[in-house]
Amino acid sequence: MEDKEYLCIIGPSGCGKTTLIKCIAGIIKPDEGEIYIDDRIVNDTPIQDRGIGYVFQEIALFPHMSVYDNICYGPFVKGLDISSAKNLINEILNMLELWDRVKDPPSILSGGAQQKTAVARALTSGSRLLILDEPLGSLDAKVRRVLRYELRRLVKDLGLTAIHVTHDQEEAMSIADRIVVMRSGEIVEIGTPLELYLRPKNLFTAHFVGEANFFIGDLLGEEDEGVKIDVNGNILYIPCKPSFEGKKVVLAIRPEFIIMKKTNGLKDAWRGMIEKITFLGSSLRFEVCTENDIMVIVKNPFSSEALGWRVGDRVNLVLSRDSLLLYPYPKEGLEKAISIE
């Protein structure tokens, strides 16, 4: 991890993401291996001397203290004079707009305000590294969406380094500089949000970071600069060479990258019929069954054309070559390989 980076760790529950950050914070000791903070090995440094600000999933504000006393706890236990830390405390209170709540006990605050207080508390001890464990998990969806941007802004404005753990891939993508995808205790992939979304190197990432269609196909052979693949009788051309052995492959494509047209005779198009339309608010989701019985999910943003589609309409799907992703067929089977539970 680099200085001043906002890193998100995502993965399904039980993938070990919380254990990982607890090891970093010193709450759990690793059985093997070393942890370095600022190039210094910290395996035997106790929690209180690591200088990490930690925001807990349970929020864990001290219920017997006021919001202000909670926020001052860091400087207080270090025996610092509160007045010397005053500037930092005031700055943080200003940024989080908590001034009118400072005298209240935490229990009467709304979830959002509690979480802000927890963040403020973690920052006043002067930590340059902030660890956030599902900081927004206990909040309403709408509040969550507002607060995540506030979090990022705070971290960037104060020039901190942050590790943010979440199971919500949308949250991670919208605020992270880089994302670590974890699954059963291992890192699956690391990359910027855009890399993970557009060019995931791993099947699981493709599935976990946003929706994707998966097709099982057979490698037919090379052609020009790419390969031809047979998916249930439909032939697709991909302009790149596979880096793996084996004939059986999996193709993936995001539903919003599929172009749906009424006009026949398009090159590489799959013909099919709309079976179901779901309203998603800012877009529509179609389930299309192709002539050779492949279920394809297509997401189209509103356009005058999309609004006109009805169930039963015959359509042509264009799977653009550049957005198709090619993977070897996993040994454990496709369903196992992408399963979240």
Binding site: A25, I47, Q48, G51, A60, F62, R121, A122
Partner: peptide, 26 residues
């Protein structure tokens, strides 16, 4: 909930301080 005590320690409190100011009052 031990998380209160752990929270105090991440804020720099020595174990004894965390117990005295957080755990015992709770």
């Amino acid at each position: 909930r031990e998380v209160y005590e752990v929270a105090a320690r991440t804020l720099g409190a020595q174990p004894f301080t965390a117990v005295r100011t957080i755990t015992l009052p709770l």
